[in-house]
Simulated assay, not measured.
Amino acid sequence: MDQSPEAPKQTPMAKEIAADLRGKITGPDREYAPGDRLPAARALAKQLGVQLMTVQSAYGQLRDEGLVLTQQGRGTFVRDPDVPLGTEPGSSPAFTALAAELSTIHDALHSLGERLERLERIVGTETPPSP
């Protein structure tokens, strides 16, 4: 959140804080790599001159996007994009539910594929009807 000395200091909103951190996580000049801990919410709130809830809301936005994980008592960490969503401690509950649902769908599709292969083998062994 760069502020020019001439501009009046504005209090950033949660979406602006999230956008700034998102750039530091995913941008070309990234400051945070997977596994890095983000600043403590209280410290960042004090630094930016905002309420703690504002920073917590920004962190919540990033968590819901799958960019960070929050671990109770440890902090907020940049998520490793190579690890499937919803499988690590601190994942968004929405991603955890989505991962479980996708796993169920994957299993059902695999089962349907096997059934289709069996049907194609059965049909392939029959002689076609004559005209």
Rank of each mutant, 00 (worst) to 15 (best):
19 A>P: 02
131 P>S: 10
128 P>V: 10
96 T>E: 15
35 G>K: 12
109 L>P: 13
89 P>Y: 00
126 E>N: 08
10 Q>E: 10
76 T>A: 08
39 P>I: 00
20 D>G: 11
37 R>C: 08
27 G>A: 04
39 P>V: 03
26 T>C: 02
41 A>P: 01
95 F>T: 03
48 L>H: 01
28 P>A: 14
31 E>Y: 09
46 K>S: 13
70 T>L: 10
125 T>C: 12
31 E>T: 07
35 G>C: 11
95 F>H: 09
78 V>W: 05
40 A>H: 14
88 E>Q: 12
49 G>D: 03
53 M>C: 11
109 L>M: 13
75 G>Q: 10
77 F>D: 03
3 Q>A: 05
121 R>L: 13
80 D>I: 07
31 E>D: 12
28 P>M: 13
30 R>I: 07
33 A>Y: 07
121 R>E: 13
39 P>N: 03
55 V>Q: 07
118 R>D: 13
83 V>W: 09
51 Q>V: 15
49 G>Q: 05
58 A>S: 02
106 H>W: 08
119 L>A: 12
16 E>M: 04
28 P>N: 11
93 P>T: 04
39 P>G: 04
103 S>C: 01
89 P>R: 01
23 G>S: 08
85 L>A: 13
1 M>A: 15
9 K>D: 04
96 T>F: 14
64 D>T: 05
85 L>G: 13
59 Y>N: 05
109 L>H: 14
50 V>K: 08
58 A>Q: 07
67 L>I: 03
20 D>Y: 06
85 L>Q: 14
77 F>L: 07
48 L>K: 06
82 D>M: 09
43 A>F: 13
27 G>Y: 05
92 S>N: 10
11 T>M: 13
57 S>T: 15
25 I>D: 03
75 G>H: 10
39 P>K: 01
110 H>I: 07
82 D>S: 12
102 L>M: 10
72 Q>D: 11
78 V>Y: 05
84 P>V: 04
62 L>Y: 08
104 T>I: 03
81 P>D: 03
27 G>I: 00
25 I>G: 02
47 Q>M: 15
30 R>S: 01
44 L>K: 06
55 V>N: 07
103 S>A: 06
120 E>H: 10
